[in-house]
Every structure is written in structure tokens, then in C-alpha cells.
């Protein structure tokens, strides 16, 4: 059979979601952000909630998330996305409101905001990208940087006596009574990406059911920051990140 006979509109089984804009993403090759953006867009498309969804983008690499997902966006100050989301959801209770935050944004400068939004049980979705590094500012140590991991501000590796140990923020979040769903996923493989998509969908559905805060961590790679090729970075993530940040549901009620 000729390729030309296969590539016909009626045979199309996968194409870009119309909720994704045509802009070429500014992310580095192989960056997990792009995959997670796509999954969010697909969930929004499948749930038919494009007109009712408001995203809050952080400071960090994903500050420009609004250039890629075709919904209304608010761009927050560093770490403050949960505060914006709190007000937005309370003032527009029928809309779907989600924050998209990295580990520096959520687990360092924005610790107070995320803790209290989750503790109040705001009916929002939090997408937390944990790649254990500050990507946009050039690869500095994050609260989630692993022990011994080399970054721009821990050039000889993270040391407990100087930097303390990695912050397992998602485990803390799961303790808060306002959260209804806390899960840790990844997107390096087909199976993991599909699981993450299901998790994102469940989180959005929880929001409509007013069950409290849904928190989806995506353990991600930052190949530029880690100074590895995209494929090697994903392998390193599986070997090193997953033992420290084990995948699966921490809470689902």
C-alpha cells in the first residue's frame, strides 16, 4: 500500500488539538513542558471546557504557557499563582481554574500560597512540574534538587550540610485536608503520558464536583539544565528522580 493512500483525512487518528495554538514552543528539544501542555489542551478539548477554563501561568520557563494553550490566561508573579487562582475560582465558581507551576515557583518562593490554597480546599487544579532545577534562570538548585546533583548554584553537588535535603512538597500537600486528589506522574513514555492525561482529566472533573484541590505533580526532565541529551535526560530521570519521587496516587478521595 502506498503511503499516499494512507495519508488521507479519513485515516487520521492523531493530530494536534485545536486548543493548542500554532506557535512553535520556546522550550528546549525534548522538554516535558511541551508534552504536559499538549495533555492539558487535549483534556480541555475532550471535556469541551475551552470557554470555561482560565489558566494561571507562573514565572519560570512556562511563563509563556499562554502562547501555546488557546484559553484565557493570567500570568502571575513568582509563586503567587495559587492566590490568583483562589480569587478567580471564588469570583467565577462555575469556571475551571488551574495553575501551572514549576518547582522553584511552587516549592520555594510560593510555598505559603500553595499550602494555604490547598489547605482551604480551593476547587482548583494545580499542575506541578518538578524537574529539580530552575530552568529559565540558567539551571540553579531548586528545593527539589536531588542530593549530590550538580547545578549552577551547587556546582559540586547538593550537600545536606549546606543546602539541606530535597523538599518532598507533594507528600506535604497530601497531608492537607483541603486536597482531594494528589498524584505524581511523568510523561517520558507513552504509558506514563496517558496516565498523566487521565490524572489531569480527573483533576478537572474534581474541580467541577467541588471536592477540593486536585494536585498533579509531573516529574519532568530538564535536559539543558541537567546537561544531558533529551533521551539521556529521560533515562536519568527514571533512574534517579523516580526513587526519590515515586510515581502514583498519594491521595484520591
Amino acid at each position: 500500500m502506498d503511503i499516499k493512500d494512507i495519508i488521507k483525512p479519513e485515516n487520521k487518528v492523531y493530530s494536534k488539538s485545536p486548543v493548542l495554538l500554532d506557535n512553535v514552543m520556546h522550550y528546549c528539544p525534548g522538554c516535558s513542558h511541551g508534552t504536559v501542555h499538549k495533555l492539558i489542551a487535549e483534556v480541555i478539548e475532550e471535556m469541551g471546557i475551552q470557554e470555561k477554563t482560565i489558566g494561571i501561568s507562573p514565572v519560570g520557563c512556562s511563563v509563556f504557557a499562554y502562547n501555546y494553550v488557546d484559553i484565557d490566561w493570567q500570568q502571575a508573579a513568582h509563586g503567587r499563582a495559587p492566590a490568583l487562582a483562589t480569587a478567580t475560582k471564588r469570583l467565577f465558581p462555575d469556571k475551571y481554574v488551574f495553575t501551572y507551576q514549576g518547582d522553584g515557583d511552587l516549592a520555594s518562593i510560593g510555598t505559603a500560597e500553595i499550602m494555604h490554597a490547598c489547605n482551604r480546599g480551593e476547587n482548583i487544579v494545580v499542575i506541578f512540574i518538578n524537574n529539580a532545577i530552575y530552568g529559565m534562570t540558567g539551571g540553579q538548585m531548586a528545593p527539589t534538587t536531588l542530593m549530590g546533583m550538580k547545578t549552577a548554584t551547587s556546582p559540586n553537588g547538593r550537600r545536606e550540610d549546606i543546602h539541606g535535603k530535597p523538599l518532598k512538597i507533594t507528600e506535604l500537600i497530601a497531608q492537607l485536608e483541603g486536597t482531594c486528589y494528589v498524584t505524581r506522574q511523568s510523561v517520558q513514555s507513552v504509558a506514563s503520558a496517558r496516565k498523566t492525561k487521565r490524572a489531569i482529566r480527573k483533576a478537572f472533573e474534581n474541580s467541577a464536583l467541588k471536592k477540593g484541590t486536585s494536585f498533579v505533580e509531573v516529574v519532568s526532565s530538564c535536559n539543558s539544565g541537567w546537561k544531558l541529551s533529551p533521551v539521556k535526560a529521560n533515562e536519568w530521570m527514571v533512574e534517579n528522580m523516580f526513587p526519590n519521587y515515586p510515581l502514583g496516587d498519594l491521595k484520591d478521595i
Partner: peptide, 26 residues
Amino acid sequence: MVVLQAESETSSINMLYGGASCGKRV
């Protein structure tokens, strides 16, 4: 009207950013 005691002034003003973005009087 929504009234909320925030966790800090930092959070309050950013709640205003969210509310104001919705075109609301906050």
C-alpha cells in the same frame, strides 16, 4: 460579595490580581 482572610498581604494583593483579571471590583 466574596470576603476572604488570606495567609499574608503578599497573597491578598495577588488575589486582587486574579480577581481584577476577571474584570471584578476587588
